[in-house]
Amino acid sequence: MLAPLSTDHSVAVIGAGLAGLACGQVLASHGINVMLFDKARGPGGRMSSKRRPSATLDLAAQAFSVRDADFQRAVDEWIAIGCIAPWPSRTYQASSSGWQALNDSLQRYTGAPRMSALTRHLADSLTALPNAALTTSTPIAALKQMPNGWLLVDADNTVYGPFDQVVISAPPPQAQALVAPWDAKLAAACEERKQRACWAGWAIFDEPLPPMPSVDPEWQMARADHPALRLISRNQTKPGRESQPESLSLLAQLDWSETQLEQSTEVIAEQLLTALKSVLPRSVLLPPLTEIGAHRWRYAQPAAPHNDTYLYGSSGLALCGDSFRDGRVEDAWLSGHRLGQALIGRSV
C-alpha cells in the first residue's frame, strides 16, 4: 500500500500524453507539486496531430469510445468545453470487391478541431495551476536516487529535482531503460508488455475524392480489407476542419508495419497510397496529389491486454499508460487517472 502523497510532496511525470496528463491533473488538483516532462515539442503523445500548410491530420488515434463511468464523466466535461465532438457517423468496410456501410451503434468522439485539442486542453488547464509545470523538448535519459529524493537527467545532462515520486507514462521499452537500475520488478513488468509498431501515412489532394457507387459522398472513415492498409480517415470531415482540402490519414496493418519497420518514409507513403487505390472501385480515380508522407510509431499499442491499470514500486517509482490495460484512448486516461488517485490515497 502506498503512503499517500501530501501538498509537501513533489512528483515528476515523464511523458505528457493522455495518461501522464491525467495523472498530473489529479495530483496537481490536490495541491501536490507536479512537473511534467516530454521529449516532443508539445504534449499529446499518440494523440498528437500533424500540421501541414493546407491541412491538419491525425496520425494515430482517430476516434475513441467510452465504456467506463469515470471516463464518461470526463468525456461529458470535454464535450461541454468543446475540445471533443462526436465523430464519425458514416463508416464503411472497404475492399476491392466493394464497400459496405458499418454501424456498430457505439458512439465515438474525436478532438475538435484536431485530436490534439484534448491533450492541449488538459495541458493548459494543468499548467494554469500554480503548483504544476510542463517542460517539453526534454528527453529524460536517466534517473538517480538520492537521499532526499529522485533526480532526473535529460539528454543534455541537465538535472531536475529532487522529486519524492516519479511517474513514467512512456511506452514500456522506454520506461524499462529508466527503471531497470532501480526496480527489478517494474523493469520485468515493462519487459512483459510487448509493443506493436504501426506506420501511418497521409495524402492531401487538390480536389475532393470522386463519388463512389452506393457510398455516401460524405463518408468519414473506412476500415480496409487489405494486407497493408487498415484504416482510411477523412480529416476534413472532422469537426472544425471543414475548410481544409481532401486530407486522408492512412493507418497501416500492424503485421505489415512490422515487416516494413526500417523502410523509408517515402517508400511507405507510396505503398500506402497504392493500397488506397486498390480498395477503391476501379471506376474511381484519385484527384491530383498535393503531398503524401508517413510517420512511424515504433510503440503504437500493446501486443496483448493487461489488467494492472498501473504499477508502482516501493522506492517512489510508478508506471502508467494504455499498455497496462488494452491500448484504447480510454485505457490511457484511466491508467493515469487511477494512478493519481492511488498516489493521493484514494481507493480505486
Rank of each mutant, 00 (worst) to 15 (best):
residue 345 G to W: 08
residue 295 H to K: 14
residue 4 P to H: 03
residue 40 A to M: 10
residue 229 L to T: 07
residue 331 D to W: 10
residue 261 L to F: 08
residue 181 P to N: 11
residue 45 G to W: 04
residue 344 I to T: 09
residue 90 R to E: 14
residue 111 G to D: 14
residue 27 L to V: 08
residue 46 R to M: 13
residue 94 A to H: 02
residue 142 A to C: 11
residue 311 L to M: 10
residue 203 A to C: 09
residue 139 P to F: 06
residue 16 A to H: 04
residue 163 F to P: 01
residue 27 L to M: 07
residue 151 L to F: 11
residue 72 Q to V: 04
residue 199 W to Q: 03
residue 217 P to R: 08
residue 60 A to I: 07
residue 237 T to K: 08
residue 182 W to R: 03
residue 109 Y to V: 11
residue 199 W to P: 00
residue 194 K to Y: 02
residue 121 H to C: 12
residue 146 M to E: 14
residue 92 Y to D: 12
residue 30 H to C: 07
residue 36 L to D: 02
residue 118 L to M: 14
residue 195 Q to I: 08
residue 278 S to I: 00
residue 247 S to L: 00
residue 105 S to K: 09
residue 142 A to Y: 06
residue 316 G to L: 05
residue 317 L to H: 03
residue 194 K to G: 11
residue 321 G to V: 11
residue 157 N to P: 09
residue 337 H to W: 11
residue 304 A to L: 11
residue 280 L to M: 10
residue 120 R to H: 15
residue 117 A to K: 14
residue 80 A to E: 13
residue 161 G to P: 01
residue 115 M to S: 14
residue 284 V to S: 00
residue 330 E to L: 12
residue 329 V to G: 06
residue 21 L to G: 04
residue 13 V to T: 02
residue 16 A to K: 05
residue 43 P to H: 15
residue 72 Q to M: 12
residue 335 S to L: 10
residue 341 Q to N: 13
residue 307 N to E: 06
residue 38 D to C: 07
residue 167 V to P: 04
residue 12 A to R: 09
residue 148 N to W: 01
residue 161 G to Y: 05
residue 215 V to A: 05
residue 201 G to V: 05
residue 156 D to I: 05
residue 263 Q to T: 07
residue 81 I to N: 06
residue 197 A to D: 04
residue 290 T to H: 01
residue 170 A to C: 13
residue 119 T to N: 08
residue 65 S to W: 03
residue 36 L to W: 02
residue 257 S to D: 07
